[in-house]
Design a protein around this nucleic acid. Structure first.
Lengths: 355, 355
DNA sequence: GTGAAAGCGCTAACAC
DNA sequence: GTGTTAGCGCTTTCAC
């Protein structure tokens, strides 16, 4: 014992049951023995249930303090069914787009007394599935998924078993499930129309990989705006692919070179925008730019970056709220919620065509 | 049944055992019954243990598929002791500093087959404690904590019981625990010395709340650099407090006004830097700036923002690796690891004093 | 107001 | 190779 605290030291505790390094904790049984009461009485005190005299309660509390008891929720879950935790599978926690989304989901979870288990799929469908199933094995009550893959039939038994599920940012593949999206099509169409309104006709589109729903939708928006203005799209102006700086830089440089370069670029997401801004900064002529997703400090660049902003936090909040509504038993049919985007003019999208 | 898939529909499943909305899942016992084998055989197949004939294995697999069985890890945990999950408590998942940190912790966890449970303390000590204890109740194997509070004695019984614990970014309070930090003192001192080397003498410091360790350390670094240069600090140049834009803006405007304004500002973290950049952009004279933490697009502003960069991902990685080393049984004495910072010159820190 | 017994779904230990 | 039994720590049920 440590004389000052009366607490067992690490070494002593470890020695007590050397065969079990981590399960080595006081249980309700231990507390009951120490307090001289029955197991169920301890359970009542720990869970704040009525029917315990103040005196008994005090004795139990003392035993809990002395032993450093903490209820084992794993065991509790096993009996109760619910884990009070939800899972969030997204592409990359380090992407500034997902930070606020993730935080919003966490806030809603917290308001419902649930913890958040977080995982990044790194845009890999297998990894997404692996993560989701690991979460299901932990018996999370619900899942918020930003899908990487396009086939989610593997979730059918889970959903049938009562795991609440909401997809965000992109719809589920081959199953019918709730989904919360931004209006990628409309946002991109408006952004490109904005460039056209400022006199551009040769407009480039650089987007994410074509297997990603938002990439396709935004490209569709681009094509719609071009068509509305009767501008035939030269396929050399369109580039989809991974969003790492090298690929985007090459794509941008290609469509900005040659005899008939584009005079404006529409960037398909925040990662693309950042790289395109860098490329444009190194040019000696002004090229207009509108980006999908807002980015920090976009207002302070010269020119400011005009963007089609989506509200990542609102996306997360809406999804999480739907999730808990499912859990609260309001089992409506799966729904598709689409949040509007907002064009923010800061200068780069209002530049006229150069040369 | 759904005729196309042979899958039970949600409604049918829910009806099967109406008394139990969520625990309504096939168990190993069910699989065993269906496959006509013993419970343990199912366990062997599910866990890939040897000693099952290919034929039996096939039958079990078929039953698993047919029933949509997924092992219940809660029950497993109860027996095995370890949960293969770790907790990460940080200030705010939405802060761009924590995204990469969090992702790095996740990657290490993944490499060790563990899931990550994530929570934001919102810089509130009570909420930190509540979160940490909730994670302990879930019996996470380990904790990575960016502390909000300064008294972590509440963790003593947990650590004694074998919960691996590593603090990041700030040290633990009143307990002896592993901690991984950036060199806040040295980084700030170097950054301020850099400003002094460029001719500044009236240099402002705007930092986070004084109860935050890094805020104090960085202020210490500021004072050390000033003292090394024999510049007495006017306390009107120093401002600590919350990092929301209003407070920082007011602080900046105050020290930039008056008859003897500061000619340079050292910003104590990324949130502060962003706001100071905005304030400086609205001035008609150049004011030098060095910020602690790198920020995206800092290189594209005019002038580029000179920063003392810390490696958030490395911080997270180092902490998580230490955590798993603890779990692997190498129980050394608690250690303090300090990672170096790096001064990145981009222009704003090299401006001479104006006027 | 309190407690004993059963059992949640799994794994460990030991039969056969 | 395979199955049986006990029990992880808790909650549920029901008896006192």
């Amino acid at each position: 014992m440590d004389d000052r605290t009366g607490q067992r030291t690490v070494a002593e505790t470890a020695a007590r049951r050397p065969e079990n390094r981590y399960g080595n904790r006081p249980t309700m049984k231990d507390v009951a023995a120490r307090a001289g009461v029955g197991l169920k009485t301890v359970s009542r005190v720990v869970n704040g249930e009525p029917g315990v005299t103040p005196d008994t309660e005090r004795r139990v509390q003392e035993a809990i303090e002395a032993l450093g008891f903490r209820r084992n929720d794993s065991a509790r879950v096993l009996r109760k069914g619910r884990t009070a935790s939800i899972g969030l599978v997204l592409e990359d926690l380090a992407d500034p787009f997902y930070g606020p989304l993730s935080r919003a989901v966490e806030e809603v979870a917290r308001a419902h007394g649930a913890l958040l288990i977080n995982g990044s799929s790194a845009e890999d469908p297998d990894r997404e599935q692996e993560l989701v199933l690991a979460l299901c094995a932990r018996r999370v009550d619900g899942l918020v998924v930003i899908p990487a893959g396009d086939d989610h039939r593997y979730l059918e038994p889970e959903i049938a078993a009562g795991v609440a599920t909401v997809f965000v940012d992109r719809p589920a593949g081959k199953i019918d499930a709730d989904v919360v999206l931004s209006d990628s099509f409309g946002g991109a169409r408006d952004g490109v129309a904005h460039l056209i309104a400022h006199g551009h006709r040769r407009i480039g589109f650089i987007g994410d990989q074509p297997r990603i729903h938002t990439a396709i939708e935004r490209l569709r928006g681009y094509r719609a705006a071009m068509e509305d203005a009767d501008i035939p799209v030269d396929e050399a102006w369109v580039s989809l692919g991974v969003t790492d700086p090298e690929r985007v830089r090459t794509a941008a440089e290609t469509m900005l070179g040659g005899p008939e370069p584009v005079t404006a670029v529409f960037a398909g997401n925040n990662r693309v925008t950042v790289t395109v801004v860098r490329v444009l900064a190194s040019l000696d002529r002004p090229v207009a730019l509108v980006g999908f997703d807002d980015i920090e400090l976009a207002d302070l660049l010269e020119p400011g970056v005009t963007v089609v902003a989506q509200d990542a936090a609102q996306l997360g909040r809406t999804a999480a709220e739907r999730l808990f509504r499912q859990l609260d038993g309001a089992s409506q049919a799966p729904e598709r919620v689409e949040l509007p985007t907002r064009l923010i003019q800061r200068g780069s999208g209002e530049l006229p065509p150069a040369g």
